[in-house]
Design a protein around this nucleic acid. Structure first.
Lengths: 124, 124, 124, 124
DNA sequence: GTGGTCTAGACCACG
DNA sequence: GTGGTCTAGACCACA
């Protein structure tokens, strides 16, 4: 699995890293129980700071995407990722709302928007 | 039009302000050619610094949602908001991708996701 | 002579007005000795503030483009516009420099640039 | 590279700063990929507020002269400056027009004007 | 009274 | 230590 970061983006590197890993899980490139590189090795591979990788891992752990074992190291949650609950759906709504609002202003129809989402779904 | 900000949020105030105004346009509560409050009055209304409002206005101006008219002050772009172009759609895709990736991990089906988007569309 | 102003421009209205009048003189649409509308009538014609027109006229008077007679009103300098002196040429250089610098960065060749200037000269 | 500002000028400091940096790029004193001082250090060097420097940097970033790299800091766009497009040429025309109009009024011939431009080109 | 500019000082997120 | 955000207060240009 290849991780592509944009150092010129406004998006923090640790957040990009989180997103890439979640995408890897969504694409089944990373499977439950599978190991992830250690903080140190990943950091040096990508050429970023150790703390940055650590922050990404902590966030993923917090949302139970990964587990951090003292001995086995970092692994994708073997029990699978927690299902969406109401809180997640709420947060998703809040994130989607401004995207949809701007799309409406720019005359992207609901059909167009859904089609775009659908296309992205297919890429996973 | 009522503007509701969350001062505890991680989202910068100026960005929330931008989002609220775009939502107002999407909901037709703000119509092309309509005037917006001056930076000073809006700032004092909301209870924030005028520079924060100004930054929001500058961003909206940059994307041609509003324009600064030397006589009328700040107005919603009377020619309407620029239609979505390829660049906007690309950016939209990049924004949607991580949301969809996480949703897939959390077993939100494509249908569920589209339904949520559809519901949000209806609120405008 | 038609005066076209852009109220959404960053350029102050009085400056735009000055520029339009100078262009009128350059195009010989306004000839030495010819009268200009009074501050009041011009202001109401264009739909701008009286002080704005006045400021434009004062600037033009300062550079001897126009004379302001108590009785004859405002007239294009009958003795013609003062020729370029060293000070004017210096100022012109200072104004051109940043335009040329940016053009160089954007790979506009000297020939291209001169051609553009030449074209503009032809429009007068 | 030395930066010379005129604090008495009507031209805003941030704009002068932008102009100086663009001139530096035009003169190849600043090369693509090269780093620029941080807002703080440049501000204290020049003796101005860091926000003023920041505004200049933001404008340069917007026109893709520079980019803000999360690791390298502020750097001249390593891909080079975007070439002139129709929009830039139009804007250039609009900027040149009043300069040429006044020059015509002051009997600066086309040849003289082109010669001045040519001289400025040679200084880069 | 409006927006534009500049300063000063503070806190935070990031790497 | 970096840029990003926010506040506060000031002066000016503009209309």
């Amino acid at each position: 699995m290849l991780i592509n970061l944009d150092f010129e983006s406004k998006e923090p590197i640790y957040q990009q890293l989180v997103d890439r890993i979640i995408e890897g899980i969504a694409k089944k490139e990373l499977k439950p129980g599978e190991g992830l590189p250690s903080v140190r090795s990943l950091a040096s591979d990508i050429g970023i700071n150790l703390h940055t990788v650590n922050k990404a891992y902590q966030l993923l752990k917090q949302d139970e995407f990964i587990l951090i074992h003292r001995q086995k190291g970092v692994v994708i949650n073997p029990d699978g990722i927690p299902k969406a609950d109401d809180m997640y759906i709420d947060q998703l709504r809040r994130n989607l709302k401004p995207l949809i609002a701007e799309s409406i202003c720019r005359e992207v129809t609901e059909d167009d928007f859904l089609k775009i989402c659908s296309e992205i779904y297919k890429t996973f």
